[in-house]
Design a binder for these strands. Structure first.
Length: 429
RNA sequence: GGAGAAGUGGCCGAGAGGCUGAAGGCGCACCCCUGCUAAGGGUGUAUACCUCAAAAGGGUAUCGAGGGUUCGAAUCCCUCCUUCUCCGCCA
């Protein structure tokens, strides 16, 4: 959520910056609501003040044993006036809230302006796409041919489309990838491993920005038990992990907080049917290792570079060619001020595909969550900055490993860093 | 799931319709005293918003959450949430 003070005082500037994201603000309407709010707030507070003062004098008069009837007469009607003012104020506040809650974050000034993904910039390209002297197969063909592999048919039977069953050595490779990532981030990059709930409440979804606007992208439980009522499956570990900071005030010494969690992610992807229907790329359920950092504001941009580097390290160690994209204003997510996407080379698609998205959310989520830190003893708490990034999406990493490490006979070489996690095995066949 | 008890500031803990944004203690910060240390004394110590050019000052809200009663609610009533104890069930 944007800072309402800044929002109201720099309405034109805000509107201009949001326009780069393709969003048109109804500036006049907002300004009108804002001045109404101001007026009604003052009226309400004045009435409350009057009521409090009168009530106090009634109390005092009563204590002295005086007749309070005339005082009560004075107060008569005050309650009704107050209630009216308050009702009006609440209505205006609710309208303003609903507007500001659905406004995305302001892009950082270093973000290129562009309409959609065509405006993204390649920041760097690491590793060279490997040359294959045979016809490459895609991960579906490779995975289904392996003994103990990817099984899409049975997933359809037991659940539906866009789910997968993994069996045997592929299931193990999938697990190995997640273990490898977790170990790397905890042992080399200083993150604390977290195990978190996969079902979250509305407050959490509001905190990270999924609600109220993106309810349709989520799976909501239609609960069999009362306990489950109103909970939703997490679309990313970012939700539970970042919300650990909700309603908290951190000491400066505690920052930065760096957390990593491996969780399944559930997305209904309502608008995306027809895209990537084949294979593991776009699933309703997938595993992801998520990095989250809570930092003081001055350090968030440096932290974004660091966090992106941590995600890149996974690709480097796996020997997967990739490139880093700086997303333009038109392609960024709702809460992000600046986002780098990592795109891994997929030989079968002959292109780079997103495998990680690393974002600096600035104070956008922190404001929704009231996640703060105390800059110094005795100083007022300030909003901290939150960052998150995939490190990496496990399913897509599996795709990348299968496709990039395939051999002419359909067997798969296991990258060296994964072999310890595979009981020393060097290949799948 | 059944039966009880409880949720107050950074923490502990009083308060049981008005004089309570909240006694007292601990902790913390600053100051004084003490040649060090220990002990002692003093002052201060929530958050958000509004008003004000800023500061000072003033105002409003907040005692788990939301409603209600009342001129007035931390205090009374209702609903919900959470925690604890005992029983049951379970991984």
């Amino acid at each position: 959520m944007l800072d309402s003070k800044y929002f109201r005082s720099e309405l034109a500037e805000t509107a201009a910056r949001l326009a780069t994201r393709g969003l048109t603000l109804d500036v006049e309407k907002i300004a009108a609501l804002e001045s109404q709010r101001r007026e009604l707030a003052v009226t309400t507070q004045d009435l409350q003040n009057l009521r409090n003062t009168k009530s106090k004098s009634i109390g005092q008069a009563k204590a002295r044993g005086e007749d309070i009837a005339p005082l009560l007469a004075e107060v008569d009607g005050l309650g009704v006036q107050l209630e009216q003012a308050k009702t009006q104020l609440d209505a205006v506040l609710a309208e303003l809230e609903s507007i500001i809650q659905t406004i995305p974050n302001l892009p950082d000034l270093s973000v290129p302006v562009g309409p959609d993904e065509t405006g993204n910039q390649v920041v760097r390209q690491v590793g060279e796409p490997k040359h294959f002297d045979f016809d490459v197969q895609d991960h579906v063909a490779l995975g289904e041919a392996l003994a103990g592999g990817l099984d899409f048919e049975n997933a359809v039977k037991i659940t539906g489309s866009r789910f997968v069953v993994m069996k045997g050595q592929i299931a193990k490779l999938h697990r190995a990838l997640a273990q490898f990532m977790l170990d790397l981030h905890t042992e080399q990059h200083g993150y604390t491993e977290m195990y978190v709930p996969y079902l979250v409440n509305k407050e959490s979804l509001f905190g990270t920005g999924q609600l109220p606007k993106f309810s349709a992208d989520l799976f909501h439980t239609q609960p069999a038990t009362e306990e489950g009522q109103g909970l939703s499956l997490i679309p990313t570990a970012e939700v539970p992990v970042t919300n650990l900071a909700r309603d908290r005030i951190f000491d400066l010494a505690e920052l930065p907080v760096k957390m990593v969690a491996h969780t399944p992610c559930f997305r209904s992807e309502a608008g995306s049917y027809g895209r990537d229907t084949r294979g593991l790329i776009r699933q309703h359920q997938f595993d992801k290792v998520e990095l989250v950092q809570l930092v003081q504001p001055e350090q968030s941009m440096a932290a974004l570079e660091e966090l992106t580097g941590h995600a890149e390290k996974v690709l480097q160690l796996l020997g997967l060619p990739y490139r880093v994209m700086l997303l333009c204003t038109g392609d960024m997510g709702f809460g992000s001020a600046k986002t780098y996407d990592l795109e891994v080379w997929l030989p079968a698609q002959n292109t780079y595909r997103e495998i990680s998205s690393c974002s600096n959310m600035w104070d956008f989520q922190a404001r929704r969550m009231q996640a703060r830190y105390r800059p110094a003893d005795g100083k007022k708490p300030e909003l901290l900055h939150t960052l998150n990034g995939s490190g990496l999406a496990v399913g897509r990493t599996l795709v990348a490993v299968l496709e990039n490490y395939q051999r002419a006979d359909g067997s798969i070489e296991i990258p060296a860093v994964l072999q310890p996690y595979m009981g020393g095995k060097t290949e799948l066949r």
